[in-house]
Design a protein around this nucleic acid. Structure first.
Lengths: 330, 330
DNA sequence: TTGAAAGCGCTACCAC
DNA sequence: GTGGTAGCGCTTTCAA
């Protein structure tokens, strides 16, 4: 089914059909109706590949996230998608499972599809990929990774602040032996969280002890981190998790071992995903405004070249949300 | 950056560049290298819109799910994606939030992009949409909704069996007053689950009482359903949930009200998502093989026209997975 | 308000 | 092995 067949059936030119389909209101109402009827009768669906090719511009935004199973990413995606939809765009979603090779493949695919812009909500990164995107000339926005400037915007969370708040809060509750449960040591933003935790601890000097365990980004990974932690003989009174998703596994493994939360051990998460409120006990965590991030990302991408209205770099401070998984040190 | 520029730089024809880029091994090694070098030097990314248009076939599979926040759908998506990737395809993801208008828009977008096939993992449906897909001639696979035949495959879960197993199990534990917590009464597969629950209850006749509450598909929705249920004065000793995702909210609301699980009330889920194992108490549920569904969907879509190897309709029976959220009736 | 026709960047067929 | 070139289905001048 092509434009031409529709044109033939409606007895007009392809140009006119195109005008109707694109709502160029120069078309006479009667012919418009004719065209629409013909299109419907033929079950016509415009070939978007041809449209993008001919028009030169695409109505798709490319988005890449590290882990579709982690609600954090889905929340950002949904906000991005909603904002895009409002502006008449759709979103092409790619996910990497934290692997740089998949990141690279995703970026190439999206550039190949001539996306109107790229949102990289990922923890893994590679300078070559950043350069490839820059060279492609596409507007881009990075969350956590990448550098701002030119057509690229950077949204960054101050993990240091967040971790400091968590540690300080736990310290004030009397905790002196704390552990960190994370994943993917090698990826910079995750490393940053761990480092931030360690740095926050360091401020208390010799009074405190800490330890870190890394696994993978899932509840199962959280459980595994706890096994590793406790297996090492270290006896923390608080466990700080890199995110809420893993924290769910931490809670469960602790329970399985008969360790009461927060009675014996306090636990904190990071992100404040919806589920954090539904764990038992409900999770104390640091809020990251995922919806705002998604919206900002879209705005940044669709911004006019000239109008430097929006900042090219934005910094977010995570807010501490106290629930029931933390309490005084035993 | 176009094929032609690459050709110019490599001093070959566009045809040759195309051959190299498509790995048609008729090209001499030396020219192949020249071309690759030129492409790399120019940061060339083939325009996939043009490729699809010219080639006539696309390497993308379209997938539509109802709720990206419900891990059930993400699990199916991931399996589908992995299988597609293996075969050299990528997946275009759409989500509907259970709205038929978005379903329709998603289908149109995917047909417009000339996806190689459509996977509809959704609860909402509309005969007109099914007809539109059929008329488009694209291979399609439906989960839960739609009818098999022609180029379309149907994957269906026997909710009746699943619900029967849940109810029977609870009955055997002594439960006589049970409630159902679901969402979207109007959507057929969800209605089926509810009906199946009611039917299963009916088999026990006057000995048992039941009640249903509908909310939306999220933990918050589950919590809300409990409020509605208990607010009505009904005092169930067991709550059967339409899925695990909502069950998480049911558990939490019960706890908030001081109702012990499974001491006072037993709770069951449906789907057996990873998180079901991480709730407190761990959730008794019915397993649906999400990974297998994703894989089967892909295979069905990529199947040769002629080879009727795979069945055009497949039925799955959910298996009961007993964990800690169920126990003897008080 | 409408039509004719020149591309958009690529593939695939036909020559050489 | 390689090049020339006719489309793929659409948008977008330019004329009428």
């Amino acid at each position: 089914m092509t434009l031409e067949e529709v044109a033939r059936r409606a007895k007009v030119s392809t140009a006119t059909v195109s005008r109707v389909l694109n709502n160029l209101d120069v078309v006479r109402e009667s012919t418009r109706r004719k065209v629409l009827q013909a299109a419907a009768a033929l079950n016509y669906h415009p070939n978007l590949n041809a449209r993008t090719l001919a028009g030169g511009k695409s109505r798709s935004i490319g988005a890449i996230v590290s882990n579709l199973s982690n609600p954090f990413f889905v929340d950002v995606l949904r906000a991005l998608d909603a904002a895009a939809r409002e502006r008449g765009y759709d979103v092409l979603i790619e996910h990497t499972d934290y692997r740089v090779t998949r990141l690279r493949a995703g970026v190439r695919s999206l550039i190949g599809k001539r996306a109107a812009g790229l949102a990289l909500i990922v923890s893994e990164m590679d300078p070559a990929v950043i350069e490839e995107i820059r060279a492609s000339g596409l507007p881009a926005v990075y969350y956590d990774v990448g550098a701002a400037g030119g057509k690229t915007t950077n949204i960054r969370v101050r993990y240091e602040t967040g971790m400091q708040r968590a540690v300080q809060y736990l310290y004030s509750l009397g905790h002196r032996r704390m552990a960190f449960a994370g994943h993917h040591a090698a990826l910079s933003p995750l490393e940053v969280r761990k480092k931030a935790f360690l740095a926050a601890m360091k401020r208390y000097g010799r009074q405190v002890q800490s330890r870190a365990a890394l696994s993978h980004d899932s509840p199962a990974g959280g459980a595994q981190a706890v096994r590793e932690l406790l297996g090492s003989g270290f006896r923390p009174t608080a466990i700080v998790c890199v995110n809420d998703y893993m924290a769910m596994g931490v809670l469960r493994e602790l329970r399985a071992r008969g360790v009461a939360v927060p009675g014996d051990v306090s636990v904190t998460g990071f992100d404040n995903i919806e589920l954090a409120e539904f764990t038992n006990p409900a999770l104390t965590t640091l809020d990251i405004p995922r919806a705002a991030i998604g919206r900002m990302a879209l705005e940044a991408l669709l911004q006019e070249e000239g109008s430097e209205t929006a900042p090219r770099e934005v910094l977010l401070d995570p807010e501490l949300v106290v629930r029931d998984s933390t309490g005084p040190a035993r």
